[in-house]
Design a protein around this nucleic acid. Structure first.
Lengths: 243, 243
DNA sequence: CGGAGGCTTGAGCCCTTTCAATGTCTGTGG
DNA sequence: CCACAGACATTGAAAGGGCTCAAGCCTCCG
């Protein structure tokens, strides 16, 4: 189980963290985190939980989804290592969404009330977290136009581009090659498509020489082509090294 | 041109305002607002503007959209009177989105930097605005699953339900009857559909006895039916009188 | 009275879904 | 070391929801 040490490492790469002062960073780090190791599919803060909590993804991937009565599922966000998520819990504890691990990994969570007191004592910390939810809102907005106005090819291409940039920003060394630990069914629930159709789209991207897929490893062979097909502009990610 | 007086009236109903103390309210009200009267279709803060600004919709309706290179448009949010919007400008000035008036109306705008200084001096005000962007994020998320996982009927039904609740919360006296100043083409750009198909869906909702349409006046005849068809749960709106 | 924008309607097409079956890989237990 | 289960990926055929194209209509407004 990782703790302060690995958290410390994380902070330096934490996106929400770019605008934090040293003092604020310290304030956050000194909060009572609880680290847990979870398996793929495990829920983070089950719907039944009364305990509102925010969390940092120390390692592994996670997603947040809403499930409709007919069983359909929409994945509204995917979290990569070092993401700070669950801030929405501060404002609306129960919104019918659930967050689960995509892969096994470690989560450092903190009780909402503890974070709230820290915030009250530290306005610039509050500002950083505010910014974090603003970035999340921008991503939602981008996904909205992605699902609402692009065809299947464009949607998938856009998702791949986004992940490439986010993963590069978060951790990965090499740009165009990364691991995306999602099944085609999960990609479908993200893109508002069907698993079957995602499969066919992926194949066509492959045949067009844009990407290569090996297990969950993705290699983008033609970034220009993929980005233009997706009409991708990374500005909304607020990533430092966005290119 | 309306000014302090009408702004004052607005504050009492302002959603972002529910959790503001009297002092914070005063702080906001004393800021240098610029009131403008705009026509339908006018841009609020044109894309060419270097001046970042946030605004309150004093009267009329507005929307925020993104336009794709192929000309397709996705409306990502609709603002009703008393909405505080454009907070995203504080974090990312240019994100390829544009905000325009849906109807003629008045906008009270404030330069971002003025708001920023006010925020620095007033942490609880910052908290209220943070909450505002959190609510907006929640709406995005809801729209995401709406477009991603519901068929055309469900999407339109959900939009109508949302507007009914928001308008009731914002101003309207009677519940199930309200004015929605959007053309079918704009509704289509909101729901990720085509104007033609929106027309047919609207007709089927009418034939099913769920709603009545007269010009831009909408009457919901069967709230239960419409809400269940849309799987609508108003919790995400964070509205006081949500029922 | 003419025009423009918005609403309707019809017909045909196509992208995406559904349904169903087959193939592939990995981990497990005998 | 092989058999077997389970989770994913892949494929084919057929149906369908929504789109496109195109024309007709209505209403408001100058």
């Amino acid at each position: 189980m990782s703790n302060r040490a690995s958290l410390q490492r994380l902070w330096s790469s934490l996106r929400a963290n770019q605008h934090l002062s040293q003092a604020d960073r310290q304030a956050l780090l000194s909060l009572p985190f609880t680290c847990r190791t979870l398996a793929a599919g495990d829920a983070i803060g089950r719907a039944s939980d009364r305990i509102r909590l925010c969390a940092i993804l120390v390692s592994g991937f996670a997603y947040c989804s809403k499930i409709l009565p007919d069983g359909a599922r929409q994945i509204v966000s995917v979290h990569v290592p070092a993401d700070f998520f669950g801030l929405n819990n501060l404002f609306q504890p129960h919104n019918g969404h659930e967050t689960r691990m995509l892969t096994p990994g470690e989560v450092a969570s903190i009780a909402a009330h503890a974070l709230e007191t820290a915030i009250r004592a530290n306005p610039t910390l509050q500002g950083a977290l505010w910014r974090q939810t603003a970035v999340e809102a921008a991503m939602f907005s981008e996904w909205l136009t992605n699902i609402g106005r692009r065809d299947a090819q464009g949607r998938i291409a856009h998702l791949l581009c986004e992940f490439a940039v986010r993963l590069r920003a978060a951790q990965a060394p090499e740009s165009t090659r990364f691991e995306l630990p999602m099944t085609q069914a999960q990609l479908a629930d993200t893109a508002g498509l069907t698993a079957v159709h995602v499969n066919r789209v992926l194949q066509s991207l492959r045949r067009a020489g844009l990407v290569e897929l090996d297990k969950r490893k993705i290699t983008i062979n033609d970034w220009e082509g993929l980005a233009s097909m997706a009409d991708f502009d990374p500005a909304y990610l607020q990533s430092e090294r966005a290119t």
